[in-house]
Nucleic acid binder design. Structure first.
Lengths: 234, 234
DNA sequence: TGTATACTATTTGTCGACAAGAATTTTTGG
DNA sequence: CCAAAAATTCTTGTCGACAAATAGTATACA
């Protein structure tokens, strides 16, 4: 008697395939499992997910739309590179979105939003406590994304989430070593920001968000500068 | 001798089909040739463009990514509706992008950018002179898009262009009659804005852009209010 | 007559295959 | 031995067809 392929879960629901591939590839790109510049092979993915190339390609088109992969016509497609030369444009956009989303959250949030926001803040504090740099990045992003949601402007949340994703990718490059940690100060700043949102103090929300964002940008730049020096030493 | 199908241009270059369908559908949606809510039939499009459904679907996925069409899983796909209820979020985003892109243009523009910007302004002035409302909309969008390009921040230009597209769609709804015209004042405001950009006066660029944007928003809201009254009269 | 069920039809999601371009290797000519 | 041309391999873009899901229609039953 020969072995019969008793595939555990060969049945996929119609239409779920694209989303599964999209989500997984997206995570792998943002977590740097797939490094920037590495090629993406449709056939390989088709084999890996046990499906035809058609849904794979649809997922890739979506990712290309978000700028996570680059597609050269009739040629290879690869994970988008990180543009370190124009980093300041990223920081400009990030700071502005921090400010405007926090401001709008102070203006339009509902009681239920605060519960969600505070839950994320608890997780962020725990990550800082545990000195888990990677967890800090993701919980910080989740917290600010929740604040943006409370502002209820899809145009801003859309751009902001995109920026947070891109930031997650950049920081992964530098936090590989796990030996860095964001200062406790950020936890307190978050608490202050949440407080002014709850108080609906719009001007103060803008001011604190600006300071907070600039602190984070400064922190990142300091990190990059240190790495640059290490690179030069080699 | 029977008629032979001497199709004029049956040959399409490999890979050009998707872009062609995407561009054309995009224009038709933004120009309201395809009205919001109207269904999109893949098979019909495939026949119309004389190609298989695969490239059609790829174009549709891209359009969905930009929010121009809505896709219900396993069901119909249709042109995205315009969200009149949350119009203020659109205006918020539009005003902010007007400001920040103008500001960055004052900061980072190069001589060549000004030439392009001024050319667009000439076209806008001509449209106002000709009292061609539709041309005013598109030339105004082109002008501000060019200003944004001079600011050299892809995150902002991306969101801004998206907003301008959405605005183009909204205004088409109200400018069908061709009997409206933007005031000459906007031409002068544009001239002032271009002047401060050329002078690299960042603060003044922000101030003028804010005033200009709020004027435009006010104009649009006035237009909508009038239409609402007409609707109610029916 | 109204409602629930079965059937049909339309539309979408997926598949395997083929063909066009580009990259790579092999062959040919100097 | 090297360079240009030819052949091959490999990947992508497109196609026609099939199958699943849903909508619409007809039928059966109370």
């Amino acid at each position: 008697m020969t072995d019969i392929d008793t595939s555990p879960i060969p049945e996929r629901k119609r239409g779920s395939g694209v989303k599964m591939v999209y989500d997984l590839l997206r995570d792998e790109i943002l977590d740097l499992v797939l490094l920037p510049g590495s090629p993406i092979d449709e056939v390989q993915l088709a084999e890996r997910f046990k499906m035809s190339r058609t849904p794979i390609r649809e997922a890739l088109v979506r990712l290309a739309g978000e700028g996570l992969i680059d597609t050269l016509p009739n040629r290879s497609t690869m994970v988008a590179n990180i543009d370190f030369l124009n980093m300041h444009t990223f920081f400009d956009a990030l700071v502005l979105m921090y400010r405007v989303t926090t401001k709008l959250a102070a203006q339009y949030h509902r009681p239920k939003d605060l519960k969600v926001i505070r839950a994320h803040q608890v997780e962020f504090a725990a990550a800082v406590q545990a000195q888990d740099a990677l967890a800090m990045i993701s919980t910080n992003a989740a917290l600010h994304s929740a604040i943006a949601e409370a502002g209820r402007n899809t145009y801003f949340t859309g751009l902001f989430n995109r920026l947070l994703d891109e930031g997650r990718r950049m920081l992964r490059l530098y936090y590989q070593s796990y030996d860095d940690r964001l200062p406790q100060r950020f936890v307190e700043e978050h608490d202050d920001i949440i407080a002014v949102i709850a108080n609906r103090d719009i001007e103060e929300a803008d001011r604190l968000a600006k300071l907070h964002a600039e602190q984070i940008v400064y922190q990142i730049q300091k990190l990059f500068a240190r790495e640059d020096r290490l690179d030069m030493a080699l």
